[in-house]
Design a protein around this nucleic acid. Structure first.
Length: 564
RNA sequence: GGCCCCGUAGCUCAGUUGGAUAGAGCGGCUGGCUUCGAACCAGUAGGUCGGGAGUUCGAAUCUCUCCGGGGUCACCA
């Protein structure tokens, strides 16, 4: 990666300057490298001289001069300038840029990949919603974020595993069971009271109806406790199937689905509880079992096993994370949670500490919740109130690509208003189409060129400013992967995607690709082919499709939309 | 009330481990299709970066304070 190369050049220059006395031998801060705000300042700029000012006790311009005098420039750099108040600016050479077209084509799908992670094993756990009802739009945000993050980390050289934790044990699962059983019995004419804390959603009736159709009234002949359990299990499986379908429709993939219940069945839960106990972090009082987290600086103790003998979600989460770190030996674990779970973070970290696992190995990404707005009014969301907008509805209305792009493009900590009516209307002006259109356009040009073989194109012919501007943008993809991976922030990618699409469209308008000039046509086709790859790779990281062609919505369908 | 997140152009949002003149999309205005896809391009208007104080050569970015919005403080998850 060119950016890394330049950082290295600077580091070497500073070291050399310190050795030959041009700079005092003081500690060097991290070398930053940015894209300058104006192209007159070149392609990359470092303010390292300004940062060294205090320690070195020299004027920043003098420091910059000393560093620049000690730079050994490779052919990728055509010019280095020192600019007030102390910036060092680097200009990429035209010939190096031209070569990058071929480098991108050679790298193919690998273009954008960097060795940052060095194969470190990282798990990304995301969505992990209760299988007690269909996913809502907030889970969609979780899925888009988690999946794109996993793709980014993979591109950044990490060994990534994506996991869904199925909360198929505990109170919520029981509530679903009781709710479905009640609806089931009601459908069959029994006078059964619906549980007060049950799930009121219409889908519960659908689940019950499906059971009646598939199994008749056989559960009514079983003891109620057994029937409830059995009905709950089947309903939960069905709900899980919905969840899998919705996520698959959003192009969200998993390597493993991990059952909470399995923690109990395998005995691991008991084992971890015992381990906590043996380390002296467990106390029993008021009939419950407590994690004495206040001993670890946490604000209060937390219940592990309730008075009724049921373990809490927190307790199983401890066992689950023990399983991740100790049994499966992930170096790092990233959990993607809704902000409403923020309270869980410090106590889980305290539990890791109690188990002698470095809490810093766990990173929890908290994303703010999604407010759904319909007809200008917020829609009250909640699985337990039964009134919420399902992810499926939005997928059907808007389609997976815009949703995915829209959800990834915002930083996790920003609260989102998702206006359903707008999203639907907006589909025509959504930025995702802009980027996809650029890709379809590259494909179209290559189709148009037909037999003209761009592989023999001579990149040295690419000298026009729009051509070079496009290449400059194309070589930035690895940097974006670095930024997104280091910051666990995939939302940068859509902005880059729009950037490169814009530069491509501009190139297209200014440079005729297929013309009478066969040699130039071949060179430009080569550039277009490389650009197509970069667009596709970027869209792939976001989880959005890169279409070979796109069809504009027909006028008649637009009229229908207007009428409705 | 304690803790966490947010407040940047009319709207939706980037930029926040301090750096050069604060950006993008949408919307507005002006211009561009006999030519490889006009779902496009070129140009233009639009800002007390919530208010105030401080640190610094330099602050949207760091500190303090105030205002506004959201979240969370369960033997739910």
């Amino acid at each position: 990666m060119i950016k890394e190369d330049i950082r290295q050049l600077l580091a070497e220059a500073i070291e050399r300057a310190q050795r030959n006395g041009a700079l005092p031998a003081v500690p060097v801060p991290e070398i930053n490298l940015d894209h300058p705000p104006d192209e007159q300042f070149g392609d990359y700029a470092s303010s390292i001289a300004l940062k060294l000012k205090r320690a070195a006790g020299m004027a920043p311009m003098a420091i910059a001069g000393a560093i620049s005098a000690n730079l050994e420039l490779p052919r990728s750099i055509s010019l280095v300038q020192v600019a007030a108040p102390g910036f060092i600016n680097f200009h990429l050479s035209t010939e190096w840029l031209q070569e990058q077209v071929e480098a991108v084509l050679r790298a193919g799908e690998q273009h954008g990949q960097i060795p940052l992670g060095k194969g470190e094993r990282v798990q990304v756990e995301f969505v992990s919603g209760n299988p007690t009802g269909p996913l809502h739009i907030g889970s969609g945000r979780n899925g888009a974020l988690g999946d794109s993050l996993a793709r980014v980390l993979r591109a950044a050289g990490y060994d990534v595993q994506r996991e869904y934790y199925i909360n198929d044990a505990g109170t919520q699962a029981e509530r679903l069971s009781a709710s479905v059983y009640a609806r089931y019995a009601q459908l069959l004419g029994r006078e059964v009271e619906f549980p007060q804390d049950g799930y009121p959603g219409e889908y519960v009736v659908d689940l019950a109806r499906a059971l009646v159709e598939a199994q008749g009234d056989r559960f009514l002949h079983l003891p109620q406790e057994e029937a409830t359990r059995e009905v709950g299990r089947l309903a939960s499986e069905r709900v899980l199937a919905w969840i899998r379908e919705d996520l698959a429709a959003m192009n969200v993939a998993y390597d493993r689905w991990f059952s909470e219940r399995s923690l109990y069945e395998s005995g691991l839960f008991t084992q971890v509880l015992q381990l906590l106990r043996s380390r002296g972090y467990v106390a029993e009082r008021e009939g419950a079992v407590w994690f004495t987290s206040s001993d670890l600086g946490h604000e209060k103790d937390e219940v592990l096993v309730r008075r009724n003998g049921q373990p809490t979600y927190f307790a199983s989460d401890i066992a689950y994370h023990y399983e991740k770190f100790v049994q499966r030996t992930f170096a790092r674990v990233i959990d993607v949670w809704g902000a409403d779970h923020q309270g869980q973070v410090p106590r889980l970290k305290a539990a890791l500490k109690a188990l002698d696992i470095d809490p810093d190995r766990l990173t929890v990404i908290l994303y703010q919740l999604v407010n759904v707005v319909r007809e200008g009014k917020p829609v009250r969301m909640g699985k337990r109130t039964g009134t919420y907008v399902t992810l499926r509805e939005v997928l059907d209305e808007v389609g997976p690509d815009p949703i995915r792009y829209f959800l990834v493009a915002r930083s996790p900590e920003a609260t989102m208003d998702f206006d359903l009516d707008l999203a639907k209307k907006q589909s025509d002006e959504n930025p995702v189409f802009y980027v996809q259109y650029a890709h379809a356009r590259t494909a179209s040009i290559l189709r148009y060129a037909g037999e003209l073989d761009y592989r023999v194109g001579d990149v040295a012919l690419l000298q026009a400013e729009p051509e070079l501007a496009l290449i400059r943008k194309m070589v930035q993809l690895p940097e974006l992967v670095e930024i997104a991976a280091q910051g666990l922030a995939p939302h940068h990618l859509p902005f880059y995607a729009q950037d490169i699409a814009r530069v491509f469209h501009s190139f297209y308008t200014q440079c005729r690709v297929v013309s009478e000039d066969v040699a130039l046509s071949r060179a430009r086709l080569k550039l277009v082919a490389a650009c197509k790859l970069v667009l596709a790779n970027t869209l792939h990281l976001i989880g959005v499709s890169a279409p070979e062609e796109m069809r504009r919505p027909t006028d008649s369908s637009a009229e229908e939309a207007d009428l409705s």
